[in-house]
Simulated scan of single mutants.
Amino acid sequence: MTKVAVIGAGSWGTAFAVVLADAGNDVTLGTPDRARRGDQLDPREPRYLPGMTLPDNICATSDVAAAMAGAEAVVFATPSQTFRENLSHWAPHIPEKAVMVSLMKGVELGTLKRMSEVIAEVTGAGPERIAVISGPNLAKEIARREPAASVVACADETVAKWLQDMCHGPAFRPYTSTDVVGCELGGAYKNVVGLAVGMAVGLGFGDNTTASVITRGLAETARLASALGANPLTLMGLAGLGDLVATCSSPLSRNRTFGEKLGQGMTTEEIYASTRQVAEGAKSCSSLRALAEANGVDAPIATAVDLVVAGKITAREMMQAFIARDTKAETD
């Protein structure tokens, strides 16, 4: 039985802890947000998945150091924009040989770093100790143990296979990859495309519009990923197209829902005030736009979404701008 710590008890962190427990691991769920709030509730109660009971082989604690003690793998599932600061406090407590796994799907503001790069910078760990997991993984469906697949990516294929075995359970099928860059960018960019699709839905547009945005979003993602050295085929798989379809198609997607509210006329501030969960695309759209610009990649969707989130244009103006763009060959 492998001892695993999952740090972050949001919906996805909690759901993935269930995946690990169902696969037979000894899981500790670290809930640092409860320590900050002085929350006196039972830490085993899933705050973001109400009505769910955690398996017996999951224990929960607000003490992150205790959660990570003796762990062979430490899985991080926290908001990407606060991750560096939090990790700097947690790093001294991470076991020396533990593999660190990111479930996060964002690019850091300012530095434009992917989460695996943040882990490497803060901890000094080599690529063989850093992995990411990405794919079409809507947390509520995973928690209900509906069949799903995902990608475990690590530069060291042996480590990727070890993690694959660790999380392969009755309803969760992981595949391996060594393309960390492609998996991370697919996961981060799909949130931005999900926002754009949500805006189209909020404006009352139908399937032709949303399919067009999804397809051009995939092309935009692949352009940036390829420019940064990723394998374009990664974007055709679970961590690219698979995650994109799930995020853009499901009302369970926080990013699509956030986009729908923008399309209906709400401001970013009003949406933030109405929910306690994070839509990563709203936080990462400006960093992805900047990353694309820094690499000379045309990114009309990331640019337009960033402008809408910042309140500089409306969702309707964004859709009109897409149609008014100069025409070109689809493969350009």
Rank of each mutant, 00 (worst) to 15 (best):
N137A: 08
A120K: 06
A139T: 08
M100C: 11
S116L: 06
V101A: 00
E121K: 02
P136M: 14
G126T: 12
S102R: 00
V107T: 01
E157D: 09
I119A: 01
I119C: 01
C183T: 15
A160Q: 07
M100R: 00
V99W: 01
R173E: 07
V180Q: 11
A148V: 14
V152G: 09
V152P: 08
A120C: 02
K140S: 14
P147G: 12
Q164Y: 02
C154E: 03
A125N: 02
L103M: 12
M104C: 03
E117Q: 15
I133Y: 06
K161F: 12
I119T: 02
W162K: 15
V151N: 05
A139P: 10
C183S: 13
L163V: 07
C183N: 06
M115E: 02
V159K: 06
S150R: 05
Q164A: 12
K161E: 15
P127W: 05
G182Y: 11
A131H: 10
S134R: 07
V99P: 01
S116N: 03
K97R: 05
A131S: 12
T178W: 07
A148G: 08
S134L: 09
I142H: 05
G106Y: 02
L109S: 14
K113L: 08
E184W: 08
E157Y: 06
G186L: 07
A143V: 09
V132P: 03
A98R: 06
A120D: 04
I133N: 08
G110C: 08
V99K: 00
K161H: 09
L138D: 07
S116Y: 01
C183Q: 06
G124F: 05
A139N: 14
V180C: 05
P147I: 09
H168S: 15
P170W: 10
V107G: 04
P127C: 02
A139Q: 10
G106D: 03
R129E: 00
R129A: 06
W162N: 13
A98Y: 01
I119W: 03
A149E: 08
V122H: 06
P174H: 06
L138V: 06
V181P: 12
T178S: 15
V122P: 05
V151Q: 11
L109F: 02
V180R: 11
K113T: 02
